[in-house]
């Protein structure tokens, strides 16, 4: 369970990226974070694992207050948070396996990680995660030999290898084609279901967000302007987030297609019935 209280971020340049953000994410809930470019989506995600330092407010993961941690305690908190990046952010010249195992770095000594001598349990888990994301036989390839979709699967496996209590995803589909984007979103959604893992996914594509998340938070200029079920995301709400546009057209053009049956369909079908929370609409 993640709880943000009055989180604010002002950059040194004076740009106010986030102001007074508060919400909580219960276990197992997948949250889609939408909003125009520059609304502070990326800053929000990075404030949670402190890749960006928040200026004020608090972030609680379970019992731990993250904003005051430093050094060793910060590293141990970070390993409880898996992160999936835009453009994958794999270390391109390392193998797929090394990339996945890098999720265990904070658990092993520097010396062991230098020699690549990870405990067998970590390696077993890495193999099963790679099988889970459908890349079981690619483990010795270099990351830059893979296609975009495959790389993002490795990115997901790396994040899960941390045994995280929370998953953050920063535009995980930004550089993928529509079909691969849906596959990746479905994969993230289904692993979150399996592990009862909460997730915050920062995403540009509204339709994708509506299809694969349990709750949508809309940001505009660093403030939460919408928080509710995907089905309640009305044209009026979209206008509040992004500004005026003919939203009816967009939704017609992007009706979900059933062309991608790669991953657990059984889980998808139970998607809408298994919502374990009921977020409310907030007014801004």
């Amino acid at each position: 369970m993640l709880e943000l209280k009055a989180l604010s971020k002002t950059y040194k340049t004076g740009d106010r990226a986030l102001s007074d953000i508060s919400f909580s994410v219960p276990a197992g809930q997948v949250v889609g974070l939408i909003g125009p470019s520059g609304a502070g989506k990326s800053s929000l995600i990075r404030c949670i694992n402190r890749l960006v330092e928040p200026t004020a407010g608090s972030v609680c993961l379970g019992e731990t207050e993250l904003t005051t941690l430093n050094g060793r305690a910060l590293r141990q908190a970070r390993r409880r948070i898996g992160m999936i990046f835009q453009e994958y952010a794999l270390v391109e010249r390392l193998t797929v396996m090394e990339n996945v195992l890098s999720g265990r770095l904070s658990y092993v000594s520097s010396w062991r990680s230098f020699l690549r001598r990870f405990p067998q349990a970590d390696i077993d888990q890495a193999f099963s995660l790679l099988n889970r994301v459908g890349l079981g036989d690619h483990c010795n390839k270099r990351a830059d030999e893979l296609s975009g979709g495959q790389r993002q699967r490795v990115g997901i496996a790396r994040a899960l290898e941390q045994n995280p209590e929370l998953l953050l995803a920063d535009e995980p589909t930004a550089s993928l084609d529509p079909k691969t984007s849906r596959q990746i979103m479905r994969l993230i959604q289904s692993v979150c279901r399996e592990m009862n893992l909460p997730a915050i996914i920062n995403i540009h594509d509204v339709v994708l967000a509506q299809n694969f998340t349990d709750r949508i938070i809309g940001l505009r200029a660093g403030k939460v302007v919408f928080d509710g079920l995907p089905s309640t995301l009305s044209h009026e709400a979209l206008t509040r987030i992004y500004g005026a546009e003919d939203w009816g057209q967009m939704q017609q053009a992007n009706e979900p297609q059933d062309d991608d049956v790669l991953l657990d369909n059984t889980l998808n079908s139970s998607l809408n019935s298994s919502l374990d929370s009921s977020p409310m609409l907030v007014s801004s």
Partner: peptide, 22 residues
């Protein structure tokens, strides 16, 4: 590429491991 460094740092790696892996 700072994204690769961020990614390793986000996994909770020590400074030394960031140098070695990223």
């Amino acid at each position: 590429d700072s994204a690769q460094i961020d990614a390793i740092r986000a996994s909770g790696a020590r400074w030394w491991q960031v140098v070695n892996y990223a």
